[in-house]
Design a protein around this nucleic acid. Structure first.
Lengths: 196, 196
DNA sequence: TCAAATTTAGAACATTTGTTCTAAATTTGA
DNA sequence: TCAAATTTAGAACAAATGTTCTAAATTTGA
């Protein structure tokens, strides 16, 4: 592991654990026994560290979309997408907890995430249509409702972790389970066998 | 308006506009032509300002619950609760945008909000039962689903504003309208006249 | 009215932060 | 092998921050 990777690993760990508000480049450097001067040789500005970590996240989401293209689109695919995304949110939790502030601070991150989300939303709309075509979802969903459902999906995806921190503070797998269930509840009324 | 109120008004305005990250007690004082020393005479610590603003918010939510107790419980009541709550979120937007970090920084705020949310959730569960009893909602909703629906409700309530900042960035009334619609979509499948 | 209480401005402080600079140590590769 | 490129530690700096201190101005109320 080279110096840059060490810095990014340490930064992710500290930001996630203690919050962006309480961690400085000096803390990050100290936590891996590196001098502050050296850290700033590798990342001239603090925001370059944030950018690099966000790029990791964005790259993971890109990979997720390629995977799905070549996969069967059914309820299992939906569960897989949800699960994988939830785990990414959890891995880069400090980003999601501070997303609005980070986006204001580093506008290119906000724009990149906005673009990414638009692509993923389209992917989910297609997935829904497939599920309707296959007779898994009810076929009487107004298209405006489909878009609304996708929106709900993404609000939950991006902020389930924040909601958990504010309320139940479930740990690890327990938290994932609770919000996986929230997604199931969202889909429940759209399943065909509940229609009648 | 006394000095304390002036400070709180200015703080709310600046935090909302520029983000908690970029505003210090000096900025707040300067914005109302007050010395920093004087500001700290009225609020010894920065967090006392945040606490006072959060108390305003919590008080408004308390009032909202008393209102509902003496009101008719129907779809209009639900719309009223949603509308009023959305406007509170908008008024105290900096709190919701930084809720997790603020909660970590000032634990009593997190605890107070957790308690408040639990009470409001119970209120919504009662409201749902009323809507079922009155034949407005379908009567075949599993109780675990009711709780899940309430959870969705609160995730959207607390984070619609953050989601909007990250994506569409609708302004004012337009944003309220978009996410009012998201709530409607959430309820749509539970309305009785959509059951068949 | 006038002494006590309060509010106020502004200087002062210790700390922290992001960043830069310098010079030494280490690594690279021809 | 050894000169050039790189990485590194640590000092240094200016700016900002939260908070405190002091002394003056203002307000209060008996």
């Amino acid at each position: 592991m080279n110096a840059k990777e060490k810095i990014l690993n340490a930064a992710l760990l500290l930001y996630n654990e203690q919050g962006i508000r309480n961690i400085t480049t000096r803390h990050i450097a100290a936590s891996i026994g590196m001098s502050g001067g050296n850290l700033h040789y590798h990342f001239k500005h603090t925001e370059d560290i944030i950018k690099a970590l966000f790029n990791e996240l964005a790259l993971a989401y890109d990979g997720l979309m390629i995977d799905v293209h070549s996969a069967l689109l059914d309820l299992d695919a939906m569960a897989f997408l949800t699960e994988t995304s939830f785990k990414l949110v959890n891995k880069y939790r400090f980003i999601f907890i501070n997303f609005v502030e980070i986006g204001k601070w580093i506008p290119e991150i906000r724009e990149a995430y906005d673009q990414l989300t638009r692509k993923r939303e389209q992917q989910f709309l297609n997935l829904f249509d497939d599920l309707i075509a296959k007779g898994i979802f009810r076929d009487d969903i107004p298209s405006s409702n489909k878009q609304g459902l996708v929106k709900q999906f993404f609000i939950t995806n991006d902020f389930w972790l924040s909601h958990n921190e504010l309320t139940d503070q479930y740990q690890d797998e327990k938290a994932l389970k609770a919000y996986r269930n929230a997604i199931d509840v969202l889909l429940w009324p759209y399943l065909k066998h509940h229609q009648t």
